[in-house]
Design a protein around this nucleic acid. Sequence first.
RNA 1: GGGGGGAUUCCGGAGCGGUCAAACGGGGCAGACUGUAAAUCUGUUGGCAUAGCCUUCGGAGGUUCGAAUCCUCCUCCCCCCA
Length: 439
Amino acid sequence: MQKFLSMNFIDEVKWRGMLHTIMPGTEEILKENNIAAYVGIDPTADSLHIGHLVSVMLLKHFQRAGHNPIALIGGATGMIGDPSGKSQERNLLDLKTLRHNQESIKKQLSKFLDFSENCENKAILVNNYDWMSRFSFLDFIRDVGKHISVNYMIAKDSVKKRMNSNDDKDAEGLSFTEFSYQLVQGYDFLHLYKEHNCKLQMGGSDQWGNITTGTELIRRMLQGKAYALTSPLITKADGGKFGKTEKGNIWLDPEKTSPYEFYQFWINTSDDDAEKYLKIFTVLNKEDIENLVKEHSEAPHIRILQKKLAERLTLMVHGKNAYETSIAASQILFGKGTKEQVQQLDEKTFNAVFGGVPRFSIKKQILTEGITIFDLLAEETQVFKSKGEVRRLIKDKGLSLNMEKFTNPDEQVTNEHLINNKYLVIRQGKKKYSIIITE
RNA sequence: GGGGGGAUUCCGGAGCGGUCAAACGGGGCAGACUGUAAAUCUGUUGGCAUAGCCUUCGGAGGUUCGAAUCCUCCUCCCCCCA
C-alpha cells in the first residue's frame, strides 16, 4: 500500500486526538523505518462493536502511513480475562466459540485494513491461542515468569485496584489466572517481536500497564527495545458511555445492529462530540474536517458533521446499499413521513426501513371485528405494558397510528386502518416505532 | 459479646393510626420549542375503569371500625462500644 498520509503517523494520531501516552523513542523509530505494530482484540463476541474502532483506526492510520499493522485476536488472553477496568472475573471462552469469533472479526477488520496479498505492507491477523496453547505451564513459568518479578506485576494499577478489595466492597479479589494476564499479553508482544519484528504495541490507555509488561519482557529476555502507544478512552461530552445505547452495544454485525440503527447512532452524535469523532473514526484529512467544522458552525441545524460521520462509517462498514436505505428510512421515520409514503413502500423496502423495529402479530379476524386501541396495544399485543400507558399517551398526544396522530380513544381499529391490507405502524412519541402485522 | 438505627412505589428520600397510590428530588415517558442536538417550560409516571374499585410501603402474624404508620416474631442492612 502506498503512503496515503502527508504527515507521519505520530503527527497524524496527534492531531486526531488519538494520542494519550507514548513511550520515549517511539517517534524516532517510526521515522527511521517502516515497522510493524499490533493491537489486541478480545474475541468475546463474534462481532466487533464500535468500542473496538479506536484501536482498529489506529491500525488503519498505521497502515496508511506505510507501516505494517498486525491485529492480534486474543484467543488465549480472552480465555483468561483482562483485569484492567473490570471489577469481576470474566467468563471463559471455549475453543469452538473462539474460532468462530475470530473468523467473523477478521471479515469485519478487512473492511478497514488491507489484508490482500499484493499489498506491500498488508495487514496480518494472528491469534495468540496459536502459540500460547502449545506452551506448557512449566515452560512458561520457567522461561517467561522467571524474568518478571511479582513486585513489578503487582505495582500495576489494574492489579493494585483489585488487590485493595477490602476497602471496596464491589471488588472481588484477583484470581491467579487473571493475575497472569499481563504476563501472557507481555509474552504476545515478545512473540510478535521475534516472529514479525513487531516493535510497537498500541491500544486504549487502560492497556498501558499490560503493554509495558511486554516491552519490559523484551528488554530483559532479548535485550531488545520495543515501544508503546496508547490512545485516550473515548468519552462523550455529556459524560455518558460511548458506544452504548439503551439497547446495548453498537455492533458492526448487521444482524446485531441494523445498518439503520448504526447510521442513526452516528447521526445522533452531539455537536460537542462530532468533530472529535470525525477525527478519530474517519480518514478525512485535516483540511476537510476543518472545512466541515466551519460549515457546521455557520449552519448548525444542517448537522453536516453528523451526516458526514454517519455517511463515512455506514459506507465503510455496511456499504452503499445499506447506506442509502438508511437515509431513506431516516427520511420516512423522521422527515415528513406520511401514511401515503409508507403505503408506497414495497415489501422489501418496508422491511429495510422498519427492520430494527419491534414487530407484533395478530389474527386478522380481530381487526375484521374491530377492536379498541387499548385492547390492541396492551392486550392482543404487548406494544405497551398497560392500557393506562396507552391512555396516557393518547392524552399527551404522543401516539400515532400509521403516521397520523391518534387522538380519539373511542375510535375502533379495523381493517380500514391496515396499510397494504397487512400491517399497522404504531409510533410512540417521535422516534419509537412498532409494527403490527396481521396473519 | 453489649448498645443503637434502619428496610417506603425505577432510584434517592419524606410520611409515623384515617384527609396516603403515598410529599419532594432524580430518572423515565409525552407535549411545546427545535436541528432526529443542547437547554428550557408544561404535563405525566401501580393496575383496571368515566365517578369508583383492586393490588402496593422487607416477610409472617396480631391490635383496631380503620395500619406504610402501633405490637410480636422472622429476614436482611448500617452505626457505635468491647
